[in-house]
Amino acid sequence: MRAQLYQFFHVLALVLLTSFPVALGWRSFKIVFMRFDYEANPKLVDVKIQLQNNSESSLNVFINTLEIMDDIELSASFALETQPGNFTNLISTTLNFCRMLKERDGEPLARIIYQDLMRHGKWFKECPIQKDTYTLQDYAVDEELLPSYLPETNFKLKLRLTQPKSVQIFKGTLFGRVDKSKGFKNLKMFSMG
């Protein structure tokens, strides 16, 4: 009897330990893409971006590179709307995009986000970036990558890719919303009734 009781507690402990990260990872929000304003250098790239807001908000990106590109700098900033029309910058960074692709230990947040992007299509893997077509299909933000305490508000993400001598490749601003009414889509699975 005692051996069975110990075995039961070991199984229970294992189940609790393996499900604990999932329970902590519940997000009571969804990320909704509203619009993406952008401009691309027509001598270097042809870019088409589509937003879809059906059952889930997703992003499709099609990039046709017209030249071989190297030594690319990425500038990014993320801001939340604190008052109507007033955004407060939370994160702002500039990094060497090509170095980020080569180095596995640099810029951990950028690396995590980039790895998430790579799961959704044919994306840049190394520099120099070759003439080719690159795609991102049905990309929806993995809310597990975001802090659970995000407020329900609008946000904007600014991106800028440049080459030496400030030659702009791409500049864009993605507008979206942290929507708490769309969270816990699988909550019924856990209900008792």
Rank of each mutant, 00 (worst) to 15 (best):
Q50A: 10
L187C: 05
F29Q: 04
K180A: 07
P108M: 05
M1G: 13
L161I: 06
T93W: 00
D132E: 14
L17Q: 03
F190G: 03
L136V: 07
P21I: 03
N89V: 15
Q130P: 00
D46W: 05
S191R: 13
P151Y: 03
Y139S: 05
S148G: 14
F29G: 03
T173I: 15
Q7M: 13
T133Q: 08
K171E: 14
K188I: 07
T162R: 14
R99T: 14
I31A: 02
L59I: 09
I31W: 00
E73K: 12
I68L: 05
I169F: 08
S55P: 00
R160M: 14
Q137V: 12
A79R: 05
D179T: 03
P147T: 10
F20D: 02
N64E: 15
G176D: 09
G121A: 09
M118Q: 15
I169Y: 05
E107G: 00
V15K: 02
I72W: 01
T94L: 04
P21R: 02
L150P: 01
L109P: 00
L44C: 01
L12Y: 09
D132G: 06
L66H: 02
A79P: 04
N86L: 14
R104P: 00
D132A: 12
V61M: 07
E103Q: 14
M192G: 02
E39G: 03
N186G: 10
T135R: 08
T162Q: 12
Q130G: 02
T93V: 12
L90W: 07
F155K: 03
K171N: 13
Q115M: 10
Q130D: 06
I169K: 03
Y114D: 08
V178E: 07
V15W: 05
Q52I: 06
T18C: 12
R119A: 14
M34D: 15
T65M: 04
A3G: 05
R119K: 15
L44R: 02
F97I: 06
K165S: 12
R35S: 15
Q50N: 12
D132C: 02
I49K: 09
E143L: 01
N54H: 11
S148M: 01
D46S: 14
A110I: 13
Y6W: 13
I91P: 01
V178D: 07
T65A: 09
N64S: 13
E107V: 07
T65K: 05
I49M: 11
